[in-house]
Simulated scan of single mutants.
Amino acid sequence: MEEQVDILDDNGKPTGKSCLKSEAHQKGLLHPTVHVWCYTQTGKVLIQQRGRKKMAYPLLWDVSVAGHISAGENIETAALREVEEEIGLQIKKSDLESIGTFRETHKHAEDFIDAELHHLFLVKLKVPFSALVKQENEVEALDLIPLFRFAEETWGLGRTEKYVPHGPSYYKKIVTEIKKRT
């Protein structure tokens, strides 16, 4: 069953309306998501290769965990749910560290426009990489890479075409925030 999402106004505030996720994408309606970036104390970042059947950016590398916030769902609850679904990790609200929001719009086709307000979180990984279990239908692969390499590849001179095009300001924010903590 397809989930309902809340619709936001231009300022990112709830309008009191909701619709199916597919309708929000078809009409380009702004709606909330969560992006959870997992990192290690030794300065590595967990990245996820999107599933090959994803409509947007199949097989590109992206945020550790991401997903839509269901209509009426608490932001942190959505983050906890997505972390468990996508990488098989049970965490607590106290493990989530909010680092703000980021608004972005990607027009994939006339009838497929991602207009999303990402709620950004960091989570320090307290388990070995081998303990993570990827969600088969959503995630192609997981990788744990050095933060310096991630920075080079996402907004440096590296391989930006390998990643979902969130843009340099998004990736710089993530790298800066993780670097402060390692």
Rank of each mutant, 00 (worst) to 15 (best):
F148S: 09
L80G: 00
G167V: 12
A24D: 01
I178Q: 02
I178Y: 04
T77Q: 13
V127W: 11
G67S: 00
H118T: 09
A115V: 05
L125P: 02
W155C: 14
H118G: 07
E86Y: 01
L147H: 05
S18H: 11
V164K: 11
I47G: 03
I7T: 04
V34W: 02
K27Y: 06
G12D: 03
F121G: 03
C19H: 03
I87L: 09
R50S: 04
G158I: 00
K21N: 09
E136S: 14
V133P: 04
R103E: 09
K162C: 10
P146D: 15
K162G: 02
K126I: 13
P165F: 02
G16V: 01
T40I: 10
Q4P: 00
I99L: 03
V83D: 07
T176W: 08
I75L: 10
F150G: 02
K107M: 10
L147N: 07
L29R: 03
R181V: 04
D111I: 04
K13S: 10
S98F: 13
L30E: 03
E104S: 13
E86P: 04
R81C: 07
K53E: 15
P165G: 05
L142M: 08
V5Y: 06
D10Y: 09
R50D: 00
Q48L: 14
P32Y: 02
R181A: 04
E85T: 13
V83S: 03
Q135P: 01
I99N: 05
N11P: 05
V164R: 10
I7R: 00
T33P: 01
T176A: 14
K126Y: 05
K180R: 15
A109P: 15
L96C: 10
H25T: 00
K53W: 11
W155A: 09
K54N: 13
L120I: 14
D95F: 00
L117S: 10
I113N: 09
E3C: 12
A66R: 00
T77Y: 04
L96K: 09
K17E: 10
L117Q: 14
L20P: 00
I47T: 02
N74L: 05
E140W: 06
Y39H: 07
K93G: 12
G16D: 07
T182F: 11
Q90D: 03
V63H: 07
D95Q: 07
S98R: 14
V164N: 06
V34K: 02
Q41A: 15
T33C: 08
F121Q: 01
R50G: 03
K93N: 13
S18T: 08
A115T: 13
R159S: 13
G43R: 02
E3L: 15
D143G: 13
A141H: 08
R159P: 01
V133R: 15
A56N: 08
L120V: 12
I69N: 06
Y171T: 07
S94K: 09
S70P: 01
H68N: 12
R81E: 09
K17M: 07
L122H: 08
R81K: 13
E153N: 12
V164Q: 06
G167Y: 11
E177I: 01
K107F: 08
M55I: 15
L125M: 15
T101E: 07
T154E: 08
P128A: 07
V127I: 15
D143W: 11
L147K: 10
P14Y: 05
G28D: 09
P168D: 10
Y170M: 09
P128T: 07
